[in-house]
Design a protein around this nucleic acid. Structure first.
Lengths: 100, 100
DNA sequence: CAATCATATTTGTTTCTGGTTATATAACTG
DNA sequence: CAGTTATATAACCAGAAACAAATATGATTG
């Protein structure tokens, strides 16, 4: 699955950011955004299917928590690109890459 | 604009990856994927509009190069999440975050 | 068990996306 | 300038995704 697609929506990144603070129930999440509850539930489903969040029933509620694993994969993918902004070799590196 | 949306397509991440090696003409990019040239041109437009690539005419061709700036923003956004996989404090941290 | 609260799913509709083919544009070549 | 090469845009279509409204499910409470 594609983590980037799951993160492509601002409400969904907002949810992720809010879960970085602490786990929250659906109602808590709903109250953070100007979106109806079914819409939030659908966003949560997308995030769940992308493996970015987990759910745990707690009494009547469902508590969503961040699952950082897919973010870690993005972090790993970015590794390849860090050289582009690491240090002042940038211009030289760019030049060498474009003229192998 | 949303960098994640621009990265949500596997062909587009493939293009980005290929440009991490070196800048390439459109035709070179086309030859790397099993899609038609117009499809590639449209993907390139999306990447251009997201600021992920730049173009420079070179004679008859157009050379696309990576612009890492938006990736760097993602890198910065991820900063907030690195604590989740940094060190073995993970479980304790998670617990504290969920029970403030 | 009936009522209620919290959340999820369904439905109908609309919009977006990505692919293709066909065509336009712009630069080079003889 | 006619022909060719490289790339972009247009037009069209099918499938995916999104939104709103209504409804279903599942736990809790009296």
């Amino acid at each position: 699955m594609n983590t980037f697609a799951a993160l492509a929506d601002p409400v969904r990144t907002g949810i992720i950011d809010s879960l970085a603070e602490r786990a929250r129930t659906v109602n808590e999440i709903v109250s953070l955004f100007d979106v109806t509850q079914p819409a939030i539930s659908r966003h949560l489903r997308v995030l769940r299917e992308a493996g970015l969040v987990t759910v745990r029933p707690e009494g009547q509620s469902r508590v969503y928590a961040l699952n950082p694993a897919p973010l870690r994969e993005i972090d790993a993918w970015l590794q390849r690109y860090r050289k582009f902004w690491a240090g002042r070799l940038d211009d030289l590196e760019r030049h060498l890459e474009e003229n192998p």
